[in-house]
Amino acid sequence: MIRVENVSKSFGTFKALDGLCLHAGEGTVLGLLGPNGSGKTTTVKVLTTLLSPDSGDARIAGHSVLSHPDQVRRNLGLSGQYAAVDEKLTAYENLRMVGRLYGMNRRTAAARAHELLSSFRLTDVAGKRSGTFSGGMRRRLDLAGAIVARPKVVVLDEPTTGLDPRGRLDTWDVVSSLVADGTTVLLTTQYLEEADRLADHIAVINHGRVIAEGTATELKQSAGSERIDVVLRNPADLAAAAGVLERAAGPGIKAEQDPQNLRVSIAAPEGHRLLVRVLSELEDRALPVDEAALRRPTLDDVFLQLTGHAAAAAAEAQASDGQAIEAPAKAGVPA
């Protein structure tokens, strides 16, 4: 349902996409991860026909973005980084308007609006102006608008950015229900927990090309051994504790320090035996520990290993590659 074949796109001397290849089958979620400037937003713009690739091609439901962009838009829904709702219209009026733009008659558009308001738990606020909604409610309304015409593919560009935990969980439930109904989803996200929970297949991109892909489990296994996390009691002990961990782990293994959370972590090829040695030496050196744990690699470890910095750091910069998509019209609406 989604196929990106050797797509390249440049902005002047900056190469946003460099032979990018992606694929997603029907009724699956493809998670797209990458640091700021990696090419995620440019990929979304190419797939939604907002940008034409310099070379290569991309297909949605078998239709080329180059030769049949109108068919691509008819089979595609988009929910961008910013909820694209008309704040002066009610929830019902927003959805009915989108239906009419798709060419539905008044009765069909109204019926579809009521159906989606019920599915997205917005019936109680159907008659209220969307400008009064919380972030989570606006996001649900935006997602509802993206599927008014029952598209085969939905692109979600960082759909939970800025939402509180409740709004994020609501959005995850919506995505799961879309997939259960057979919709294919492309999900770009800065939250690795989100990709871990929702994505059937994950592609990590950097500098416009895929640098790793697989299931969440496969990617975490590629990060190697278990890890030790130690939380210190005193900020002044952080560097000394990192030295203890590095000496215990052996040559070439570096500890990662998180001063804000007083946390030191390191790869643990010997598992619990290394943890026992580390705790013993920390106690001998009078370096008090509040928490210590042995854990399996996470997607954040994978991200760090592949891109050189943690996903949280990548998410701090919100300037996008190319230009940000700011409240675009629904991509599925025919031009």
Rank of each mutant, 00 (worst) to 15 (best):
R273V: 13
G322N: 12
E115Q: 13
R121P: 00
S67K: 14
D86H: 03
P288Y: 01
I205L: 07
S38G: 08
T48Q: 12
G31F: 07
A241M: 08
G135L: 05
S118W: 13
E326Q: 12
I325G: 03
D321C: 06
G99P: 03
I2T: 07
Q190Y: 11
L33S: 10
V244A: 12
L51G: 05
G162V: 06
Y191K: 00
P251W: 14
S8M: 02
R129A: 09
T48L: 10
A109C: 07
D54H: 13
A324F: 04
L116H: 01
G34F: 11
Y102V: 07
A239S: 15
P165N: 12
A109M: 09
Q260P: 00
R3D: 14
L78G: 01
L17P: 04
R139C: 02
V72T: 04
N105Y: 06
L232A: 00
D284R: 01
V179A: 08
R150L: 12
L95N: 04
V210T: 15
V231F: 13
S79G: 04
D290I: 10
V289T: 08
A314M: 06
F14V: 15
P269A: 03
L306Q: 03
G34K: 09
I147P: 00
S64W: 15
E218C: 05
D200K: 00
D321A: 08
G145P: 14
G56N: 13
T28R: 03
L76P: 00
H23K: 09
V185K: 04
L279M: 13
G332D: 01
E226M: 10
R121M: 10
A149W: 02
Q323Y: 11
T13E: 15
A255F: 04
P165W: 11
G167H: 04
A236W: 04
A58D: 00
F303D: 09
R285K: 12
R107W: 02
K15I: 02
R138Y: 09
G250H: 11
A327W: 15
R295F: 07
I147S: 06
A317W: 05
L294G: 03
D196M: 07
R168W: 06
S177I: 01
P69R: 11
A329L: 13
I60C: 08
T188V: 12
I202G: 06
S55Q: 14
G135V: 05
L262F: 10
V230R: 00
G56H: 07
L274Q: 12
L163D: 03
S265E: 04
L32N: 02
Y82F: 15
V175H: 02
A146H: 14
M1D: 15
L304V: 03
A84T: 00
K128T: 08
D18N: 11
E226R: 05
G27M: 02
R129N: 11
L169H: 06
V185Q: 01
P159K: 15
I266D: 02
R150Y: 10
P151C: 15
G145M: 09
L143F: 08
L66S: 09
I266K: 00
L33E: 10
S55W: 01
L304R: 10
Q190A: 09
D196S: 05
F14M: 11
A242P: 02
G208L: 13
R140V: 02
L282V: 11
R140I: 01
L163Q: 06
P235A: 03
A240R: 00
F303L: 11
D301P: 00
E246L: 09
T48M: 15
E194T: 05
R263V: 13
E316R: 14
H23E: 15
